[in-house]
C-alpha cells in the first residue's frame, strides 16, 4: 500500500479527478450493494433486477473509463438483451419461484465464504502489489470517435477473430434452437378429430355457455344459470373447477336463488355447496375438453403454484 501511495505521490497522472472520484464512489457503492443481491436475495426476479442495476452502473463506469462505445454496448447488450433474456426465462420457469437457503452440501457455505475471501485477498493483493504504469489515457482525437477507432482495429487486425465470433454466435443460436426443440410424441389433434370425438361420445357439440350469464356477476368463476334458474357447471372453465375455485351462487346473489329446494330437476348439476365438483375425467378427455373450450391445456400450473 505504501508503495502505491508513494507512486501516486510521484506521478500525478495516476490520480483520478474529483468528479470521477465522486462518480466512482457513488456508482461503485450502488454496484456492489446490488451485486450482493446475488448472494442474499431469495427471489430470482429480485436478483435479476439487481443485476440490471449493476449492468447500468457498469455502463456509467465504462464511460468514465473513456470507453463510450462499450458503455453503450453494455447498456444495449447486457441490460437490453441478456438480462431481458434472463427475465424471460424466469417467467418461463415461474416468476415467483424462490430459492431455499437451506444448504444441502455439508460445509459448502463456509467453504464458499472462505474461498471468496481467499480469492479477494489474492486478487486484491495482486492489484496492490503490482506496479502500475502512469495512466496514459485513451488518445482523444476529435476527428476519430471512439467507435471509429475501435472499428479500425476490429476490421483490420481482428477481422478473422470477428468472423470466428460470428460463427460462434450462429452456432450458439442454432444450438439453443436444437436444445429447446421438442419432438412431438403424440399426434396433433385437429379440430375435426375433436368434433368427431365429441359426436362419438355424446359430448356437447356446441361451445359451452359463457359463465356469469343471468347472474349479477359476469366473472369467469361464477357459473351460468339455465332458464329454470339452475346452475350450469359446464360454464365454468375446467381449471377453475378442478381447483375448487368455483363460486357458489349463494355467495354472490342470494336473491336469485329459488325459494324451493334447489336442483330438483337436475340433481347432478349442483354439487353440495362449497364442494369440488366430482371430476372423473382422464387427462385426454380433459385436454380435449379444454381445447373444445378454446383454451390451451395448461400443463404444470399446479406445480408452479405450489
Amino acid at each position: 500500500m505504501s508503495a502505491m501511495t508513494t507512486l501516486a505521490a510521484t506521478d500525478p497522472s495516476l490520480v483520478m479527478s474529483v468528479p470521477e472520484q465522486i462518480l466512482f464512489w457513488t456508482v461503485g457503492a450502488i454496484v456492489v450493494l446490488a451485486a450482493f443481491a446475488l448472494l442474499f436475495s431469495k427471489r430470482a426476479v429480485v436478483t435479476a433486477c439487481a443485476i440490471v442495476l449493476v449492468m447500468v452502473g457498469l455502463c456509467f463506469l465504462y464511460f468514465a473509463l473513456q470507453a463510450p462505445f462499450l458503455g453503450v454496448a453494455q447498456l444495449v447488450v447486457y441490460t437490453g438483451a441478456i438480462m431481458m433474456l434472463f427475465v424471460f426465462v424466469l417467467m418461463l420457469v415461474g416468476v415467483d419461484i424462490s430459492d431455499s437457503f437451506i444448504e444441502t452440501i455439508r460445509g459448502q457455505r463456509p467453504l464458499g465464504v472462505l474461498f471468496g475471501l481467499g480469492l479477494l485477498a489474492c486478487l486484491g493483493g495482486a492489484v496492490l502489489k503490482s506496479t502500475m504504469p502512469p495512466v496514459q489515457g485513451i488518445p482523444q482525437d476529435p476527428e476519430v470517435s471512439n467507435p471509429s477507432a475501435l472499428a479500425e482495429i476490429l476490421f483490420s487486425n481482428y477481422a478473422f477473430t470477428l468472423e470466428i465470433t460470428g460463427c460462434l454466435l450462429i452456432i450458439a443460436a442454432l444450438g439453443a434452437v436444437i436444445m429447446t426443440h421438442r419432438v412431438r410424441l403424440t399426434k396433433r389433434i385437429t379440430q375435426g378429430e375433436i368434433a368427431a370425438i365429441r359426436l362419438r361420445d355424446g359430448m356437447r357439440l356446441t361451445p359451452p355457455p359463457a359463465p356469469g350469464n343471468y347472474a349479477r356477476h359476469n366473472a369467469a368463476d361464477i357459473p351460468a344459470l339455465d332458464a329454470g334458474g339452475d346452475v350450469i357447471e359446464d360454464s365454468v372453465p375446467t381449471v377453475l373447477r378442478m381447483r375448487g375455485q368455483v363460486h357458489r351462487l349463494k355467495g354472490v346473489a342470494q336473491d336469485l336463488l329459488p325459494d324451493e329446494v334447489p336442483a330438483t330437476r337436475r340433481p347432478d348439476a349442483v354439487p353440495p355447496a362449497g364442494d369440488i365438483p366430482a371430476v372423473a375425467e382422464t387427462p385426454q378427455q380433459l385436454a380435449a375438453e379444454a381445447e373444445a373450450q378454446g383454451r390451451k391445456p395448461e400443463a404444470g400450473e399446479g406445480e408452479v403454484k405450489s
Partner: peptide, 24 residues
C-alpha cells in the same frame, strides 16, 4: 486515489460472482 480503484472494484465484483456460483 488512483485508477487501481477500478481494479479493486472489479475484484470485488468477481469475488461476489464466484461465491454466488458456490453457494446458490
Amino acid at each position: 486515489m488512483t485508477v487501481s480503484a477500478y481494479l479493486i472494484l472489479a475484484s470485488i465484483l468477481f469475488t461476489i460472482g464466484a461465491v454466488t456460483v458456490l453457494v446458490r
